[in-house]
Computed example of a mutant assay.
Amino acid sequence: MKPVTMADVAALANVSKSTVSQYINNRYDYMSEETKRRIEEAIRQLGYKPNYVAKSLKQKQTSTIGVIVANILHTFSTQVIRSIEDVCREARFHAIVCNADDNPQQEKEYIEMLRAKQIDGLIVFPTGGNIDLYQTMVKEQYPLLFVDRFVKDLPVESILLDNEKASELAVDHLVESGYRKIGMLTTSLHSNITPRIERINGYKKALEKHGLPIREEHYKGVDVRQMDQVLAEMFRLPEPPDALIAGNDLTLMEILKFAKKHNLSIPRQVAVIGIDEVSFSGIYHPPLTTIVQPAFEMGKQAAESLLAQIKGSDRERKEIQRFAPKLIIREST
């Protein structure tokens, strides 16, 4: 069958091709409702599908961005993605989401693949393992934005939580609640991932502020698979922690599994507070105290900033923008 063209739609709707083009590109502010209705009905009757490849070649833009998350299992990542997609949909952009799984090689392959598809820009939760590739994009002035992490000495717009403040809120609340042997567990520190390092630093500074000792045996950054063993070692200490801060949602899950496995009563035997809200925090028994990231606001800001880069808009540009965390007090502390 002969493919349906824009001219076919124009003929059936009794309008010009340029009017159909304006409708398809959402430029119809001054178009009558009757004209829009006829074009919409003609498109429906004919089953017309716009040729986005031809459109992108003509406009030199694909109206598509890429989002590369470091680990899609994090609740924060999925919330940010949702918000990015909402902004893109409103702006008539598409978002392609890829999961690097904290693997620099995988991240590199996704960046190269997405750029080969001529997407208009990238939002990346950087693994930090592709400095040369990031620098190349910066030199090319390719629209690029980082979320959750930044790369030192690289002038890329970055959207982050105030991570040290998040840990400070957790320690302050625990101290006010009477706890003094406060521990912290998070995922591996080996790759110098920004939020993990900053949250540990914030934890140490907050202990010092309250005149509490920093005990190396009470804070660890390890692979998720090692957490059960590390927690077992912590609670075999002569003075185990009486409160634990989970550095992220994956760590919180491991702490809760350990507590259940060893019949540790929360908060009677150990108080628990998690950095990152989780969907079950309010219905878990006991309900979990958490430090919340404004993930949807951060995703919205990331998408709007990247689209502004793509459109070349003249705006004030902050290299690093930090969002404030919020303490939600429940019964686990």
Rank of each mutant, 00 (worst) to 15 (best):
A7W: 07
D8Y: 10
A11Q: 12
N14T: 11
S18D: 06
S21Q: 04
N26S: 14
Y30H: 12
M31H: 02
E33S: 08
E34P: 04
T35Y: 01
R37Q: 15
R37W: 11
A42Y: 03
A42I: 08
R44Q: 14
Q45E: 15
V53T: 11
S56I: 05
S56Q: 01
L57Q: 10
Q61C: 12
T62C: 12
I65Y: 00
G66H: 04
V67D: 00
I72W: 05
S77G: 06
S77W: 09
V80H: 03
I81N: 00
I81T: 05
I81W: 06
D86F: 07
R92N: 14
H94P: 04
H94A: 10
H94M: 14
H94Q: 15
I96Y: 11
I96V: 15
N99W: 05
E107M: 01
E107Y: 05
E112L: 15
E112N: 12
R115M: 15
G121L: 06
L122S: 04
I123H: 02
F125V: 05
G128E: 04
I131W: 02
L133G: 04
Y134L: 03
K139F: 06
L144E: 01
V147Y: 07
V147Q: 04
D148P: 00
D148Q: 06
F150T: 09
V151E: 00
K165Y: 09
V171F: 01
V171T: 01
D172P: 01
L174V: 08
L174F: 07
E176W: 09
G178Y: 08
R180P: 02
K181T: 12
K181Q: 14
I182S: 00
G183M: 05
S188P: 04
L189P: 07
H190S: 14
S191I: 05
P195S: 10
I200D: 02
K205V: 05
A206P: 01
E208G: 06
L212P: 02
P213A: 08
R215V: 09
R215E: 14
R215I: 13
E216I: 11
K220M: 12
D223N: 10
Q226K: 06
D228P: 03
Q229V: 11
V230P: 02
V230M: 13
V230D: 07
L231H: 08
E233V: 13
M234R: 12
E239G: 14
P240G: 10
I245S: 03
I245M: 11
T251W: 04
L252H: 06
M253D: 09
E254F: 04
E254T: 14
I255Y: 12
K257H: 14
K260G: 08
H262T: 15
S265E: 15
P267I: 13
V272A: 01
I275H: 02
V292Q: 11
V292D: 02
Q293D: 04
F296A: 11
E304I: 13
S305L: 12
L307G: 00
G312F: 03
I320M: 10
L327I: 07
I328C: 10
I328P: 00
I329H: 02
